[in-house]
Simulated scan of single mutants.
Amino acid sequence: MKLSFKKTYKFAVKSTFYISLFSTGFVLLLVTMIFDYTSKKLWLFGIVFTLILYLFSFIVLQYRVERFIYRRVKKIYDEVSLLESSSFINQPITTDMETLTREVRKFATDKKLEIEMLQVREEYRREFLGNVSHELKTPLFTVQGYVSTLLDGAMDDKTIRKKYLKRAEKGVERLIYIVEDLDMITKLEVGDLNLEYSEFDIVELIQNVFDLLEMKAEKKKITLAFENYHIQPNFVRGDKDRIQQVIENLIVNSIKYGKKGGLTEIAVVNLTKEKVLVRVSDDGEGIEKQNIPRLFERFYRVNKSGSRSEGGSGLGLAIVKHIIEAHKEKIYVESEFGIGSEFSFTIEKV
């Protein structure tokens, strides 16, 4: 590490001034008490003595300060350089303790924040790997169990064979569903998924999703409806298939966590001249406040046991967030536990 040495003269100047002031005053006092000098000679002696003493003291003090402090400060910089903080290494070495203290404090604060961030990421990584393992393990063990049973002799019974093969197929389908969602969210995160923009009627698209999910909603007697019964066509610009996926995921969640005989409403609002707001609200169980900030994390589930029994990959909301952000838009969530939830997102208006 190449170090540049930034000198500071403040300490030497002030210290020399105090030494010279005291020494000159003391010497002049002694001279007037012991010797018989005229005022003119006394003043001349005082000035010469002060100048010589000041220069000598300054040189000695500055040299000693540089030697004394520099050696110790250099050790600090050398030790800090082991941590490879380029912003700190590139700073010139200073013998000014105030500056050094400020730099070291800033360095320590930055390192503390970096360590805390790494700890958060490590915790997230462990939790993510645990969730992936759990999500994949369940269908894998299901498929393994049915296949093992068939191999152990149940294959000879046509009825059991067909039933078990169908169940194993469902397990494989769930595995494929999880892997496809993981692949999509990875592409969204790194920006490899290209969006195909087109102009389409968002109201018509929502109606198509209603038709697709009608039977799923009927199982829980949940009504799917527009907030405004006389809603007019509203043309927007975006990737039609991806926006449909967003709306489908939000409505599926509202059905999954909605109460029996409940209502899921969709509103399409002209937010500004350039933006349309799509709002999906339900009267289900709602979400507790502490869970809201983590809703869009991969595999995060508010009710882990209940939601797993409902199926799904646990990646729905994470995909929704990434698709909306890929459109350079925003997604919002509001929820009150026991009352219901509302998800909304913006999209560019034609």
Rank of each mutant, 00 (worst) to 15 (best):
L51F: 13
I160D: 03
A154Y: 03
I292R: 03
G311S: 14
I59V: 15
S307V: 08
A318M: 01
S4Q: 11
K163F: 04
L295E: 05
F141Y: 13
D201Q: 11
L182R: 15
K74V: 05
L213F: 00
E122D: 12
E84L: 10
V236Y: 01
D201E: 07
K14V: 15
L140Y: 14
D211F: 14
V13G: 05
F299H: 04
V333F: 04
I19Q: 04
V276W: 02
F35I: 09
V13M: 08
K14S: 11
A318H: 01
K216E: 14
G258I: 00
K112R: 13
K111H: 05
F210I: 08
G261Y: 06
Y77D: 00
R237L: 06
S341R: 12
G338V: 11
Y18M: 13
R279S: 14
E285K: 15
D156A: 08
E103Q: 13
E265Q: 15
A168P: 03
R67A: 09
I287L: 13
I247R: 07
S15C: 12
L44K: 01
M155C: 02
L118G: 02
R125A: 15
R242T: 06
L250K: 05
I247K: 01
T138E: 05
V278D: 00
I115R: 14
K112Y: 09
I176P: 08
D152G: 12
M97P: 05
E103D: 12
E248V: 11
I319V: 14
K328P: 01
G171M: 00
Q207C: 10
R64Q: 12
E310G: 12
D156W: 02
T32M: 10
L193R: 15
F11Q: 09
E348V: 12
R167H: 10
I255L: 02
I202V: 15
A168G: 12
T95G: 00
G171H: 06
F68K: 08
E173T: 03
